[in-house]
Design a protein around this nucleic acid. Structure first.
Lengths: 131, 131
DNA sequence: CAGAATCCAATTGGATACTG
DNA sequence: CAGTATCCAATTGGATTCTG
């Protein structure tokens, strides 16, 4: 995707696709967005199944992309809080239609009685998503 | 992501993420959406840099997901046309905000003077995207 | 707590050549 | 034309262990 950029360039798209195609990126952005600010461990809890490595790696990329802000406090035990930058928040807004579309496909939870998806969202977010 | 589905389930999200994280999936969906229906070779042209294998693979997945419709005509030489299903079209609508967000990041084409992104869109689509 | 380090298996996708 | 078949290199991400 990089080398296409001599004559024909997909650079603008390259950005999101690289971000989005990271398996957990959208989930992380959403999670942080929902809770305003989250600590590492809390993120691990909110995203069941993610490994610390993957979370760490993805957070770094999101930070490098200017989507997530990392604030570390010199305390013991250490405390680090993640929040969305303006850009990150905008991105999150931009994917709401996508989430809504997903949530309503196949009647949503018709086959799958789990509630992790909706369950991960605070009430005020739920209301918005349900339109 | 699959095995998470005993107690805590991310199934609803699993869908799009698997679709979206395919490097070319969104580009393909967009391309087809812009032109209503496209043939294989035309898709290759519209998506510079994609290999036939990748295109073929991705199309199959999109078809299996019910996002793309494949119609083959018994002619010589063979003709196959791809179009979006209702679901595919909805998905495409759902990602427009995302594309718009991307296009306006960093002032859009500030560093990159290419026009492949906007260039790939018919005028009526461009207008909508520019808001 | 917040990760870094290591190791490793699976997935992805590019290049190329071939076929009905 | 519309793929398929092969081969292969790079990326990804899970598990696990360790550390300031």
């Amino acid at each position: 995707m990089d080398k296409v950029c001599e004559n024909i360039c997909f650079c603008p798209l390259k950005g999101i696709i690289d971000v989005i195609s990271k398996k957990w990126a959208l989930l992380i952005i959403n999670a942080i967005g929902n809770y305003e600010r989250l600590r590492f461990k809390r993120l691990m809890d909110v995203l069941p199944g993610i490994s610390p490595k993957t979370l760490s790696d993805t957070l770094k990329e999101l930070e490098a992309e200017g989507l997530v802000l990392r604030e570390s406090f010199a305390e013991i035990p250490p405390r680090v809080e993640y929040s969305l930058t303006k850009d990150g928040a905008d991105l999150r807004e931009a994917i709401v239609p996508l989430l809504r579309w997903t949530a309503t496909r196949n009647g949503g939870a018709e086959r799958c009685k789990c509630n992790a998806f909706y369950g991960g969202f605070p009430d005020h977010v739920l209301e918005k998503m349900r339109k």
